[in-house]
């Protein structure tokens, strides 16, 4: 299952961050998921909730998912347009010479965590 694989990679990246920053607990993880990344966010959350119960560092980690809009650039008329609405064909000049600019990514924006060097108030 694709979403479970992504959860495992996410956990590994968080483990590495925790080791570097000497974190003991992660309270939340905020992801930025592109509209056309192919990730099904509700299924992803189910996988996350299954996994975190088995992983002490992430036991209390709430997953926050922000959706990042997909934008396509047209090489013929050099305009940009929303990908989800119009797909590969430019709505202005109907060219197919188009490239996805953003919307395919899955980025860990930030995490809330305890441990390590807490910042002074």
């Amino acid at each position: 299952m694709h979403e479970m694989g992504i959860v495992l990679h996410l956990a590994k990246t968080l483990d590495e961050t925790a080791a570097q920053e000497k974190l003991t607990r992660i309270g939340s993880v905020t992801l930025s998921v592109g509209e056309v990344s192919g990730i099904m966010t509700d299924l992803f959350e189910d996988c996350w909730n299954y996994f975190r119960g088995r992983h002490p560092l992430l036991k209390d980690a709430v997953l926050k998912i922000e959706t990042a809009p997909a934008v396509t650039f047209c090489g013929s008329c050099e305009r940009t347009y929303p990908t989800v609405q119009y797909g590969r064909e430019c709505p202005y000049c109907h060219s197919g010479e188009t490239w996805l600019l953003t919307g395919n990514e899955c980025i860990i924006k930030e995490i809330e965590a305890e441990g390590g060097e807490e910042q002074e108030e």
Binding site: I6, H9, L10, K12, T13, E16, T17, E21, L23, G27, L31, E105, C106, I107, I108, K109, E110, I111, E112, A113, E114, G116, E118, Q119
Partner: peptide, 15 residues
């Protein structure tokens, strides 16, 4: 709790 900005791809460890 402190906030750590990562901006890393989910698959950073794989990369």
């Amino acid at each position: 709790m402190r906030i750590i900005e990562l901006g890393a791809s989910v698959t950073a460890s794989n990369d």
